[in-house]
Nucleic acid binder design. Structure first.
Lengths: 245, 245
DNA sequence: ACCTGAACACCGTTCAAGT
DNA sequence: ACCTGAACACCGTTCAAGT
């Protein structure tokens, strides 16, 4: 029963009873850590019950003692990885004279970058607060910055949800483009992009003026830049609405 | 070989040779229409090769003559449904004195509403312009409105991508919350929401001030309202940046 | 050109039985 | 309390063979 991997962020026993001297149930963490390893190597598609069991050195049924099924496993794996995002932004917003919007921006960027690094995260991060404690805490942390703008609860809720939606949505979209090719490593991002560019250039300029207008930007674009530009639009709008209050 | 369904938007033959009198290859359209029916009834999970073949009255292998695999089938099904969005916004932006941002807003809302009606759309709409002609045309149409703001190609590209990312991301997130329950109809949206609300209220208010601040809004929120509020923030930011040019 | 039957190589999940 | 082996009920895809 080979257990590699650093321990995952949260340690809990199946019964929920906290152990005396942090001896840690050890196995739910090993399951999640193994899942993360597989996800990093071969994406969500590669995370099968049998592959995980093989890595853990057991039978495929053993996993079901720790987790209700594959969906919960994915949720937990995604959330476990967000612990590092949380610590990365732990100091953000602590001082009262920090700019709330700049703070919100830092949190959003940190979350986005984590998803870019692990494309499989996009589909499972921040989607089930009942199971995902770090997701909830990131949501809370982001919301606290927005709260400082003095908006109504309703506007506060809307703004925070908008930021999360934009981050997750954009990141998920960017991480999903190459479904099989990226996992199998047959085709790089550049080839895929180049293919789309050739297709775009071949379109009728009269019918697709916009596509032709931006095709050069598309050809040389960087996902992170694109994300930040969009995020800044959103945050500019938020700042405006905070000033209007 | 029962063929129900209105004809899908694009009619093409396998060879790509256009038929003389729109006699339509008929079968690729039937395959896509059947796929859409299944997707509407039971979601992406329900669309299996065998289920589709059964509905079409043939063997599971027959589908592979029209489509390279399940992924392409999903792409085509998603895109076929966007034809109606495209016609719904066909007149938008035709007059030169229309407000570009109001026009962009209408397109974004129409797209969002389509995804709310068909949650399975979220994961497959607007993600592969090579295969999805209506997605490309919607992107173009939206981009044309942004173009009218007189931004640089780069800002134009960023703004349009941001809007699409926000729409798809938010819609996909909202449509995915109830993974199995919604398909099997065991639990309504209200029960699910109520569960999250009770969990939120049980959190420590000192640790989760934001969650407590917005929990009432969350409890009674409408997805469409929430989306529109976020979209308006984004568009406000865009208008600001257009004014600054 | 289009479709079939049957098979291949997998899946997630369950469940009796073990320790 | 935790794990195993083996099975169940599926999957997507391929491929020879038909028409």
């Amino acid at each position: 029963m080979a257990v590699m991997s650093e321990p995952a962020a949260s340690s809990r026993t199946r019964t929920g009873v906290p152990r005396g001297r942090a001896r840690a149930s050890h196995s739910i963490d090993a399951v999640i850590a193994g899942a993360v390893e597989i996800l990093d190597e071969s994406g969500a598609q590669g995370l099968t019950t049998r592959a995980l069991a093989a890595r853990l050195g057991g039978g495929p049924a053993s996993i079901y003692w720790y987790v209700s099924g594959r969906e919960e496993l994915l949720d937990l794996a995604a959330d476990s990885v967000l612990a590092s995002v949380l610590t990365a932004v732990s100091g953000v917003g602590d001082s009262d004279d920090s700019d709330p919007i700049a703070c919100a921006r830092m949190i959003a960027v940190a979350l986005f970058d984590a998803i870019v690094d692990r494309p499989w995260l996009g589909a499972y991060a921040m989607r089930n607060t009942a199971q995902q404690i770090h997701s909830l805490q990131l949501y809370e942390k982001l919301g606290q910055q927005v709260m400082r703008l003095g908006l109504s609860p309703r506007n506060c809720f809307h703004a925070t949800s908008a930021i999360v939606g934009f981050v997750i949505g954009t990141a998920a979209d960017m991480g999903q483009q190459l479904p099989v090719e990226v996992a199998s490593g047959q085709m790089g991002r550049e080839e895929y992009l180049a293919g789309a560019v050739t297709q775009w250039r071949a379109l009728d300029p009269l019918q697709y003026p916009f596509v032709h207008h931006v095709v050069d930007e598309f050809a040389g674009h960087d996902d992170r830049d694109q994300f930040r530009a969009g995020l800044d639009l959103l945050l500019d709008g938020l700042r405006l609405s905070a000033g209007r209050r």
